[in-house]
């Protein structure tokens, strides 16, 4: 439902942009594909990049990692079959109801070696907010699904297929006070990746 005033604002803005259009040819460049030398160990590169961004990496079966790393966790929300949670994300009336989650567990749709990033679309989160309201986030990554570069990621069909898709690279962080780095600014205090094939 658009008012007349709003319609005309649109027309006036587009009209001004048209009449002020810069002269000259400004062709859209082709995008070359830039390689990245991962030294033949893409998984190792990914994990090292992730750690330098504040992420944690643990070996082992996901449920065992969870138990070892978060022995005191009471409220666990899981969207993966490898880990049994005790909270049903399909029955959440309001995202705020997830504020007491200690650990959320999910699986990345893909990962990026260049930056140590995991890609989390809405479909793997169940409720988007759980990835930020939980105190800690655990993400399973299939080594076969690690892409090399950020550029590769933006060529994936998933990027245009979800209402919401977030790249997470380490935990929530801030250094707004004198450059002191602090994890858990507003979102999760830690991000843990567990390698686990599908």
């Amino acid at each position: 439902m658009m008012t007349d005033a709003a319609m005309s604002a649109r027309e006036r803005i587009l009209g001004a942009l048209r009449s002020n259009r810069p002269v000259g040819a400004h062709p859209l460049p082709e995008l070359p594909h830039f390689p990245l030398d991962d030294g033949g160990d893409r998984t190792g590169y990914f994990l090292a990049a992730l750690k330098s961004m504040g992420g944690k990496v643990f070996d082992g079966r996901p449920d065992e990692v969870l138990g070892a790393r978060f022995p005191d966790a009471k409220q666990i929300a899981s969207t993966v079959p490898e880990v049994a949670g005790n909270r049903d994300l399909t029955a959440v009336a309001h995202p705020r109801d997830l504020a007491d989650i200690d650990v959320a567990v999910t699986r990345a749709r893909f990962a990026i070696a260049e930056t140590g990033t995991v890609a989390l679309p809405d479909a793997v989160l169940g409720v988007n907010a759980v990835a930020y309201l939980a105190q800690h986030l655990v993400v399973l990554v299939d080594p076969a699904e690690i892409l090399l570069t950020v550029q590769d990621a933006y060529r994936r069909p998933e990027m245009a297929a979800h209402a919401y898709l977030a790249f997470h690279t380490g935990p929530s962080a801030t250094a707004d006070i004198e450059g002191v780095l602090i994890h858990g600014a507003q979102g999760v205090r830690s991000l843990t990746v567990v390698l686990a094939s599908r």
Binding site: Y164, T169, P171
Partner: peptide, 15 residues
């Protein structure tokens, strides 16, 4: 001087 922000979020529609 960080390779990427901790969060790069893509919104394409309402949840």
């Amino acid at each position: 001087g960080s390779p990427i922000t901790q969060y790069t979020s893509h919104f394409r529609g309402p949840r």
